[in-house]
Amino acid sequence: MSLDPATVRRIAHLARIHIEADDIPRWQAELNGILGWIEQLAALDVAGVPPLTGVAETALPMREDVVTDGGMPEKILANAPSRADSYFVVPKVVE
């Protein structure tokens, strides 16, 4: 499976990373190099094998559904690139 320029653009947009048009051939070549190497996995028979999502041996712990943290807006906003009062500021999203 080989990526064409349109697919590179689509992936970059899905990943929300701007790529200059001039750079698309370079990304296409690099990504195809990696995917071409990964392709060897297609030869392995995995019929009936369950997927492994993690190796933690413990079941996820349960706890009371209560608030255990919070009340620290200043700490949370301390690293905001742009803020107004207790809000993060972004470009207008609703006309």
Partner: peptide, 9 residues
């Protein structure tokens, strides 16, 4: 999904 199955192996 295939990679997760190979991880099991």
């Amino acid at each position: 999904l295939r990679a997760q199955k190979i991880r099991t192996l």
